[in-house]
Design a protein around this nucleic acid. Structure first.
Length: 428
RNA sequence: GGAGGGGUGGCUGAGUGGUCGAAAGCGGCGGUCUUGAAAACCGUUGGCCCUCCGGGGCCCGGGGGUUCGAAUCCCUCCCCCUCCGCCA
């Protein structure tokens, strides 16, 4: 949510920012109309209430003195009707303006490249060099199937398309990656590990911005106000919902492993093969709740923490700053980490690190107390570090050998009982 | 799933229809005293919204109702606690 103060008083910035993200200008005009109506009505209803309160007070005094108060009672009765009507109107306006506000995306940071889609994204740096193969590298779906560690058929049998079974060394590799990432972030990067609920209420999803706009991407539990988490960002960012935090405690850093569940109604036909786009995948997520003055430094730091995993695994990647049109709903600035996948001869997204500034904090009511005793909204950041399924893909494709086996990266071996190689027969 | 008891300010806790945004204590902040600190004493101490910057409105778990008037009465939802049942 954008602040009403900004929406009212920084018109040009808001118009330009929303336009660069492809938001219809009519939505903003509608907001302005509602805001004016709301304030008019509020002043009116509050004036009536003041009159009513004064009259009620007089009634109390008169009654205590044993005097009649018929005139005052009639006055209040009259005011009551007026107040009711005004409050009904105010509630309608509030509902409407709140609805508009929940649909408005965050404004992009000044450093974000302008553009309608990913073609305008800016490559910040390229790290590591794609390995040269002296054989034709396979895609992970062939590699994994042949090793018996990825079973797409049985995944589909159990739950349908976009579900996969990991078996044997595949399942162990997934678990090892999770462990490696959590150990790194908690041990070296100062994050507190959290194991949150995997189901959350609609309120939490409104807090982080998935609802009300993107309900179609979520799995909902039938008959309940509960959703499967699409990312641990949701429970982690909402962890301090409604709280006033101690300024000295900032930034708070949280890391969590969760499975993530995405219905992704709009993705039919994209990445249908392999593990890239699944209804269920594992992710280790980082969240920082930061002081507003230090949130952009925190974004660089957090992105570095995600990169650290790729470096440890010796996977080539690049860092991309998303353009205004490609940046997600809640974010002001996002870096994507794209890992090199030799099987697809392309860089593919493996992490997304965002500064949401106060956009989510306003929705979720996360504040801190300032030096002068006031409260102010925190800034929230989140990043995948990393998407585990895609990391597994990257390991398989980058570390594959001519004979179809896969070498285990050095850093991962302690988590796999010293195993150096995955070969046929290590799965189903 | 069944039975009962509760949700009041940073915390403990009083308040059962009117001057209650709310006693008291603790904590916090400021001051007096002190070489300094503690103790003692005095004062102060919630949030949100609107504003013609004078002020005004709202908030006692959420929502609704009764009433001229609700922290207080009624309905409903949520959460917490105790006991029983079930269960990993």
């Amino acid at each position: 949510m954008l602040s009403r103060e900004v929406l009212r008083n920084q018109r040009e910035r808001v118009i330009a920012g929303l336009a660069s993200r492809g938001v219809d200008a009519a939505l903003l005009a509608r907001w302005q109309e509602l805001d004016e109506a709301r304030r008019r009505t509020l002043v009116e209803v509050e004036d009536r209430k003041r009159q009513r309160n004064e009259a009620s007070k007089r009634i109390g005094e008169l009654k205590r003195q044993g005097q009649a108060a018929a005139g005052e009672i009639a006055e209040v009765s009259q005011l009551k009707g007026e107040i009711e009507a005004l409050e009904t109107r105010l509630a309608e306006i509030d509902g409407a303006i709140g609805g508009v506000e929940l649909e408005l995306p965050n404004l992009p940071h000044a450093s974000v490249p302008e553009g309608a889609d990913e073609s305008a994204n800016r490559v910040e740096r390229v790290v590591g060099e794609p390995r040269r193969f002296d054989f034709a590298p396979k895609a992970h779906w062939d590699l994994g199937s042949q090793l018996g560690i990825l079973d797409f058929e049985r995944g589909a049998k159990l739950a349908g398309a976009r579900f996969t079974v990991l078996a044997g060394a595949g399942a162990q590799l997934e678990r090892a990656l999770i462990q490696l990432m959590l150990d790194l972030h908690t041990g070296e990067h100062g994050y507190t590990e959290i194991l949150p609920p995997f189901l959350v209420s609609a309120e939490m999803l409104i807090g982080t911005g998935q609802l009300p706009k993107f309900a179609a991407d979520l799995f909902r539990v039938e008959g309940r106000d509960l959703y499967l988490v699409p990312t641990a960002e949701v429970p982690l960012t909402n962890l301090h919902r409604g709280e006033v935090l101690d300024e000295a405690a900032l930034p708070l850093r949280y890391a969590a492993y969760t499975p993530c569940f995405r219905a992704e109604a709009g993705s039919h036909g994209r990445d249908v093969r392999g593990l890239i786009r699944q209804h269920q995948f594992d992710k280790v997520e980082l969240v920082q709740i930061a002081h507003p003055e230090r949130s952009y430094a925190a974004l660089e730091e957090l992105t570095g923490h995600a990169e650290r995993v790729l470096r440890l695994l010796e996977l080539p990647y690049r860092v991309v700053c998303l353009s205004t049109g490609d940046t997600g709903f809640a974010a002001a600035k996002t870096y994507d980490l794209e890992v090199w996948l030799p099987g697809q001869d392309a860089y593919r997204e493996i992490s997304s690190c965002s500064n949401c500034e106060d956009f989510q904090a306003r929705r979720a009511g996360v504040r801190y107390r300032t030096g002068d005793g006031k409260t102010a909204l925190v800034h929230t950041l989140n990043g995948s570090a990393l998407a585990v399924g895609r990391t597994l893909i990257a390991v398989l494709e980058n570390c594959q050998q001519a004979d179809g086996s896969v070498g285990v990266p050095e850093a991962l071996r302690p988590y796999l009982g010293g195993r150096e190689r995955i070969t046929a027969g290590d799965g189903l």
